Simulated scan of single mutants.
Amino acid sequence: MVALVLIGLGAGVGYWLTARHYQPIVTTAQADVKKAGEDLASCRTTRESLEGQVGEQNQAIAALKAAEQDREQKAKAAADQAHQDAQQDYQAANRLQQERTGGDPAATAAAIIDNELGL
């Protein structure tokens, strides 16, 4: 019976010494786990925010590309129209040069221009 009491007393003292030794380590580990959980939540929030911003940037880039293509098409159409308009003027200028009949060049040019304009 004394042996059982001594074994129980030894076990109780051993438990108390072990708990006293490991309690600060367990408390520190629990605090670290809690901080890691908070950091994880913060990282997830930041990640979601960044994903949203990247999505908005991708939409803006797509809109800019569409606007660029639209401007390119309009510029090409305007250049084609200008080329056609210039071609008509070029042909009219060639006719003016070919229809020169002699006499005063200024009066002849004025008459041809008036004729072209329907005056």
Rank of each mutant, 00 (worst) to 15 (best):
Y90G: 05
G118M: 08
D32V: 08
A62N: 06
R47D: 06
A77L: 10
A29E: 15
T27K: 15
A92G: 01
D39A: 11
L50Q: 11
A41K: 14
E56R: 08
A11W: 04
D39C: 02
Y90W: 13
K35E: 05
A11M: 06
R95V: 01
S42C: 02
G37L: 12
Q98V: 03
G37N: 13
L119A: 11
A106D: 07
A78Y: 03
A11Y: 03
A41V: 11
N58W: 04
L9W: 09
L6C: 07
A109M: 01
N115A: 13
A75G: 06
G103C: 05
A107C: 03
L117Q: 15
D89M: 12
I61W: 05
R100G: 04
A62M: 03
A3V: 07
H83I: 09
K65D: 12
G118C: 09
G37F: 04
E38P: 01
A111S: 10
Y15M: 09
N94Y: 04
H83E: 14
D89G: 03
I113F: 03
N94T: 05
V54S: 02
Q57G: 02
Q87C: 04
T108G: 01
C43N: 14
I25R: 15
V5H: 13
K76S: 11
Q84T: 06
A111P: 01
G118E: 04
G8V: 05
R95Y: 03
G14N: 05
Q57M: 11
I112C: 02
K74V: 03
D104P: 00
A86L: 12
E99L: 08
G103M: 07
T101N: 03
C43H: 14
A78T: 11
G14A: 10
A19E: 07
R71K: 12
G118N: 09
E116D: 09
N115I: 00
G12C: 13
D89E: 13
Q69Y: 06
Q98W: 02
E99F: 02
M1S: 13
Q59G: 01
A109P: 00
Q69C: 04
E48A: 13
L4V: 11
Y90E: 13
H21E: 10
I112H: 02
V5D: 13
K35S: 06
L119T: 09
T45M: 09
E48L: 10
P24E: 05
L4I: 12
A63I: 10
R100T: 03
E72C: 03
Q81V: 04
T108N: 08
R44T: 15
V13A: 09
E99M: 04
A11V: 05
Q23G: 09
T28R: 15
L6R: 14
I25T: 15
Q73S: 14
A107H: 02
P105L: 02
Q87H: 08
T45E: 14
G55V: 02
A86G: 15
Q59W: 02
R20S: 15
D70M: 07
T46M: 08
A3D: 12
R47Y: 10
A110G: 02
A93F: 12
A111Q: 04
E51Q: 13
G103L: 05
A3E: 14
H83W: 10
E99Q: 09
G14V: 04
R44P: 02
V54A: 05
K35P: 00
E51C: 01
L4P: 00
A107T: 10
G103T: 06
